[in-house]
């Protein structure tokens, strides 16, 4: 099938094609040679190759028809360990077609509660003769000790800018795009080391124009008009809290902007304001605090409104 999404189209099919993770890929290759593998824990930030590594490993181990031997679950979507266990059981019930075992890839395993992880651990033991597990997480410290001790730990490193730049250039060449230097810099900056995001941004930009400059990238990556964001900040800083809150709600509900995207744009916009630099850095601290609270908290609208109240306070002084 023709891959329409570049992240898939250019996803490495072989372990050796994975960029920037030499230590990991070397070890994984030995498993392919041996035709066997232990349970594994992949740790590292998003968009640096954890899922790709798991998929490539399965493809190389099992060859054609590898999908039948590979179950992919995402802990942040499979609510409740019972669902996970049910699916694992169902999958493990039938014999592996090739290689003598099957692979269960559990992504975002750190989203599981401690209790769920304990239940997971029992599943790992029960099906150890027929299944290998690959758990993937952002932080290995959020995985309980007993699971860690049963897994070979693989730390995926943050990708260097060069690695991302090379990959984007490679894709641009294949897709017949031209890309200016400052457009590339902007892509590197806004993707924050996340290759998946960088490729998605590149493809979004290509939908506007084949000749990609910074303006195209900026248009493609900001969902909301910068003008609206500026108005939001200015209203709040003038102390017009109710007005700014109204605009915030329109942006969130009307445009369907995710809180985290909105806050990233607010961050960008703050440095373009005509306020003293000290104020800018102060606001950046506030924004950072509330981005953290959005991630940890339950409701982003409450957090964003609280942030606007902080803006209103700082602006008034």
């Amino acid at each position: 099938m023709v891959e329409e999404v570049w992240v898939e189209k250019y996803r490495p099919k072989k372990i050796e094609e994975i960029v920037g993770q030499e230590e990991v890929t070397k070890r994984l290759s030995t498993y392919v040679e041996a035709g066997n593998m232990p349970n594994m824990l992949f740790a590292g930030p998003p968009g640096i190759g954890k899922t790709t590594a798991a998929l490539a490993l399965a493809m190389e181990l099992f060859g054609e028809g590898w999908e039948a031997n590979f179950l992919e679950l995402n802990a942040s979507d499979e609510r409740g360990i019972d669902v996970v266990r049910g699916k694992i059981k169902e999958f493990a019930r039938t014999k592996a077609l090739r290689g003598g075992f099957k692979i269960i890839f559990l992504d975002e395993a750190d989203a599981l509660t401690k209790d769920a992880q304990n239940a997971m651990r029992r599943s790992m033991e029960r099906y150890s003769s027929v299944c290998r597990f690959i758990l993937s997480c952002n932080y290995s410290s959020k995985i309980i000790e007993p699971i860690q001790s049963r897994c070979a730990l693989f730390r995926f490193r943050q990708l260097r800018e060069d690695a991302i730049r090379d990959r984007l250039s490679y894709i641009s060449g294949k897709e017949g795009l031209t890309i200016t230097d400052d457009a590339m810099e902007l892509l590197l900056l806004s993707s924050e080391g996340d290759l998946r995001r960088a490729i998605n941004m590149l493809q979004s930009s290509s939908a506007i124009k084949k000749e990609i400059d910074a303006e195209v990238v900026s248009a493609a990556t900001s969902v909301v008009m910068p003008g609206e964001i500026r108005r939001l900040i200015e209203l709040a800083m003038k102390g017009e809290f109710m007005e700014s809150r109204k605009l915030l709600r329109e942006l969130i509900m009307g445009y369907g902007v995710a809180g985290e995207d909105l806050i990233a744009q607010i961050h960008r916009e703050v440095f373009r304001l005509s306020v003293p630099d000290e104020m800018k850095i102060h606001l950046a601290g506030v924004i950072g605090e509330y981005e953290f609270r959005i991630v940890e908290g339950s409701n982003e609208i409450i957090q964003l409104e609280a942030m606007l109240a902080q803006f209103a306070l700082k602006g008034g002084k």
């Binding site: 989203a111 940890e296 339950s298 409450i302 902080q310 306070l313």
Partner: peptide
């Protein structure tokens, strides 16, 4: 404005706990 900011900070921190309750 400072009462409002403090009040919202309390709500925001309450929401942090609710988030942790949900996730963990």
């Amino acid at each position: 404005p400072s009462d409002l900011a403090r009040g919202f900070d309390s709500l925001s921190r309450a929401d942090l706990f609710l988030g942790r309750i949900k996730k963990r």
